[in-house]
């Protein structure tokens, strides 16, 4: 939606634009990509963007799992959703950077952690290639038509607030980036019937159970706290947790493995004794 809206804003200014997502599984919280290309002339290139002038990172936790800034042009600019100042953000390349706490802004304006409109305000701040006014018009058009007039106006306000609260600076480049190890076994290595055993090579596991290396705990915006004293050991949370983050100990008390928690809040919901409470991540323990 953000890519489409920025493209629409450019079109409103009389430019040529295109926007498209990376086709993948449609799941909440999974890393996804979308691209927008803007020009004054007709755009004939329809490929994905590998070397962007502007990189927008909607969730700073992506920096730990993907080499997102790998293709960013030297003179390019990054926009990062983070409560940190640009100087504190390590993108892996030194570049001009705008940071904005879009999650907080979205929660204030939309009452939901949906950051795709707030981040557009920060994009206007980072580079005046499209004005804030056009972006806000595009938001009202796009969201207003789909979700009603009010949705259009609150999303446009979120973009305005993000424009005001964005901070500009240079980010750090200490992080080592390398392309993900895209190892797939060659056909000579694969037994007949394309069966794959439990193997590990170059630090990457494949085969049965190998998804365990996906640390899905970075997806969520909230996480549970557990009060042992209130727990009656009914195990309802253990049953309901879709991730299998909850481990039962000898005495029927529980241990939470937050490395995988996606913050759905079901454990707190099914607890009959309020022994589990959800709180927003990063908002103080």
């Amino acid at each position: 939606m953000a890519a489409q809206t920025i493209a629409e804003a450019a079109i409103l200014e009389g430019r040529q634009a295109q926007a498209f997502p990376f086709f993948g599984a449609e799941r909440r919280g999974a890393p996804v990509m979308a691209f927008a290309r803007i020009d004054d002339r007709r755009i004939c290139d329809r490929t994905q963007v590998a070397e962007p002038d502007m990189l927008v990172v909607m969730d700073a936790s992506l920096l730990d799992i993907e080499p997102v800034a790998l293709g960013l042009k030297k003179e390019g600019c990054a926009v990062v959703n983070s409560p940190m100042r640009p100087e504190e953000i390590d993108l892996g390349v030194v570049a001009r950077c705008v940071s904005v706490d879009a999650t907080s802004i979205a929660l204030e304006h939309l009452k939901a952690p949906i950051v795709n409109t707030a981040i557009l305000g920060a994009m206007a701040r980072a580079d005046a290639f499209v004005s804030l006014a056009s972006i806000q018009r595009a938001i009202v058009n796009r969201f207003g038509e789909k979700l009603g007039e009010r949705a259009g106006s609150i999303n446009s306000e979120a973009a305005g607030a993000a424009f005001e609260r964005s901070r500009e600076g240079m980010c750090r480049g200490e992080r080592k980036m390398q392309r993900g190890n895209a190892w797939l076994p060659t056909w000579q290595e694969t037994p007949p019937g394309v069966a794959l055993g439990r193997w590990e090579r170059g630090g990457m596991a494949v085969g049965p159970g190998s998804m365990r290396q996906n640390m899905t705990g970075t997806w969520g915006t909230s996480s549970p706290t557990y009060t042992r004293a209130r727990c009656i050991g009914c195990q309802r949370c253990w049953f309901i947790c879709p991730e299998g983050c909850i481990r039962r100990l000898e005495d029927d008390s529980l241990e939470f493995d937050l490395r995988y928690c996606k913050g759905c809040g079901l454990c707190a919901k099914v607890c009959p004794k309020e022994a589990i409470a959800m709180h927003r991540k990063g908002a103080g323990a």
Partner: peptide, 23 residues
């Protein structure tokens, strides 16, 4: 649910949406 086997065979780290009923 208290006496059922505890060992997981659909392991953590799968990529379902938060709150997925299928998972």
């Amino acid at each position: 649910i208290r006496s059922m086997p505890q060992e997981d065979h659909l392991l953590s780290g799968h990529g379902a949406c938060a709150g997925c009923g299928v998972a």
